[in-house]
Nucleic acid binder design. Structure first.
Lengths: 192, 192
DNA sequence: CGTGGCATGTAAACGGTTACATGATTTA
DNA sequence: TAAATCATGTAACCGTTTACATGCCACG
């Protein structure tokens, strides 16, 4: 394991709450870091095997009623140490990939209405996003009142909210801009 | 070619300015959409071959002085049509991958100072980013005064600026938050 | 008893980066 | 002429998603 982030996400999730199965981890991921990270089962299950042979996690017999044949895991001391080591290292920026901006950048090649549609669609998505994030914020305090992770979780949430709000504001002015472009050169076809 | 975005980026760049080589395209990408999209040579050169056999671009003999052995390309009518078709389709959101937020989310597993360092580092990056984007904005009008693509390019820029500013604001308050976490539980070690 | 969700896993395909090889041209 | 940069390309590798296979368990 050099810099495989899947492995670290798993270690992190087991650090927060032990005795999770691969299935649990995937679900928990979706509802916690889902807005800025994702993993598929095809990554998680092989990673669990790998981490086990490296002694960073331990397969345990499920303490809670063994309702189903499912394998739960717990973090070992070595695993926790490894997680902390990774956390202390500088974060890396992943290569940006924003198809919305790409299409907007090439907007002149299509009719202005195409870009308008894309921006409207983005606004729609961001409105939903904002509602979701605010919902999570409201609930989180009720569900995990004393959880020591809360300050960190709230920080990730508040960044999401701030960015979404900024994007929504931008969207409003972008629609105005596009309207004036359209007025200046209505249905302007790209040159052949 | 089903939904390979590399191909469409190339078509788009050739639509904006024809007679570009693979090398040119890569360079142009870096300095235009570089903040929200990237492609490597390992993607571009095979794509140029593929697009040629599909008749979407044409290899041309360099009109300008053939200073070097280099292959330039031009968009065909079919290529332009394909680009427009793609532009009109709804954009897709790429799976989010933000290692900064991931580390912040697990921040409780490390000492508070680790998270503080990460946020400071982010602030630094965003300050540089903001300066860069504003620089581009200032220059763009001088360099391409009458370019019909400008409205679209400026929109992508202004979103970048808005998001960066929002992130910077968040960073300030995040540092304050982290300071109070640190005060409440200084050097709080994660439980063994 | 059948359906739907729980749960684990694997193989293939894909998109992408990295490293490497090669050689031409420009500049110092 | 040496070094830097221009320019094209390929092979290997990596991380990731997708599709598929399998079977258990709970519920109606």
């Amino acid at each position: 394991m050099r810099d495989n982030r899947t492995d670290y996400v798993i270690l992190g999730m087991l650090a927060i709450e032990p005795n999770r199965s691969g299935y649990d981890i995937r679900k928990a991921l979706e509802f916690s870091v889902g807005h800025f990270w994702s993993e598929s089962y095809g990554q998680i299950y092989p990673a669990l095997k790998r981490l086990t042979t490296e002694g960073l996690i331990d397969p345990i017999k499920s303490t809670s009623a063994p309702k189903q044949r499912r394998q739960e895991y717990a973090l070992t001391d070595a695993g926790r140490a490894r997680l902390q080591e990774w956390l202390a290292q500088p974060f890396q920026n992943d290569p940006p990939r924003n198809e919305f901006l790409l299409k907007l950048f090439f907007g002149r090649e299509a009719s202005p209405s195409v870009s308008v549609r894309h921006v409207r669609e983005l606004q729609e998505k961001n409105r939903r996003m904002l509602a979701t994030l605010k919902g999570i914020e409201r609930m989180a305090h009720e569900v995990h009142p004393e959880n020591p992770n809360m300050p960190y979780w709230m920080l990730t949430l508040s960044l999401g909210i701030a960015l979404t709000r900024a994007a929504l504001d931008w969207g409003e002015s972008a629609l105005a801009q596009l309207a004036s472009v359209d007025a200046a050169a209505p249905e302007c076809p790209p040159p052949a």
